[in-house]
Every structure is written in C-alpha cells, then in structure tokens.
Amino acid sequence: MLTRGCVTLSLPDQFPAVDVFWQGDLIGPSSGRLRAVVASEYREISQADLLQELARQPDLAAWILQQQQQRIDVLRDRILWLRRPVEHRLVRTLMALDLQAKDRMPEASGIIPLTQRELAGLAGATRENTSTSLNRWSTQGLVELQRRRLRILSHKRLIEVINQSPQPAPTGAAGAAA
C-alpha cells in the first residue's frame, strides 16, 4: 500500500507506464517496475498479515474489492479510448491526472509529476507524438512544460482540442482492429 507520494508502474522494455498509484492506493503483487515520481512511502504487507486483518475486519474485503473494481474500470475506459485520436487520448490522460494530482497530492499545487514518456504510455501514444502535441500546446499556452513534469494552464482550451477536432464514428470490431 502506498502511504505517501505517487508511483508509476511500467513493464521494462515494453511499456514506459501502464498505471499510476497515489497515496492510499493498494498495489498488488506485479511483475512490473515502480518509479517514485515524488518521494514516496509504502507499506509492504504480507499475505499472512492481510489475512489476519481481514479476519478481524471482514468489511475490509469490500473496500479492497472496490479499489480493484475502480482500477478495472479505469483500465477498461482506457481501452475504449484507444479508438479515439491520439490527441484526444492525451487530453483525457492529462485531465484525469490533473484531477487525481489535485485530489490525492494537493501539496503539488496542480503539478502533474510524470515524464512525457510516462504520459505517452498512459495515453497509448508514441513518445514522439506526445512530445509534438505537448510542445505545440505549450507554445499555445495550454500547458507549462517543466523537467519531468508539467502543469495545465488552461483546462477549457485543452478540452476544446477534443471538441474542435472530428469525432470518430462508432466502430465495431473491424474498426477497433484497424
């Protein structure tokens, strides 16, 4: 369990970032690599300790299931968004991370502490496409780029990127596979 900070989960040599964890999130056993994007603290809880606590507090199981369900919902949503243009996915990723950062790490004052490579991974985009879009939005004053982090300057104008570009028509399996 992450008790303070923020970490990303990546699959080395495959995906730069597939998930983000914030203070209070449960991180299950995984085969990935965690990177602390800010100074972080965590508790390594053994299965025996967890089972003992579940026997003492059975309603804890409902909370753990709820946490896992929320994570599944987020991942399912990201899969559905893969049909959308890259820039839509980037905007959506930035807006979601901005909300999470403000809610879970308010001391960061709206900073999204992820690298462009990690953002690309979360948005399902290439590093090059991500960099091109972010640099353009930076020039336009929509975002402020810093080393290994960024900040949204205009949420309204960033959302307009989605609203002003053409929406893809609903597609079936053939479209999704294209």
């Binding site: 995984s30 508790r43 507090q57």
Partner: peptide, 30 residues
C-alpha cells in the same frame, strides 16, 4: 477509513523521488 485501518500493517519503507522498485522488492536509487 480502511486506509487508516491497514496503514499500520507490515513494514514501512520509503522510496526517494526518482527511485525504482522492481518486482523483487529491491529499491534502487535513480
């Protein structure tokens, strides 16, 4: 509420900004 209930379990560990933790639970500095 549940976060508070289990945050005392197990061993507390820290990871510096930029530090990595691999599946084998060995923390390394960036």
């Amino acid at each position: 509420m549940h976060f508070e209930a289990i945050r005392h379990l197990g061993l507390a560990k820290s990871l510096p900004a930029g530090g990595y933790l691999d599946a084998d639970a060995t923390a390394t500095a960036a």
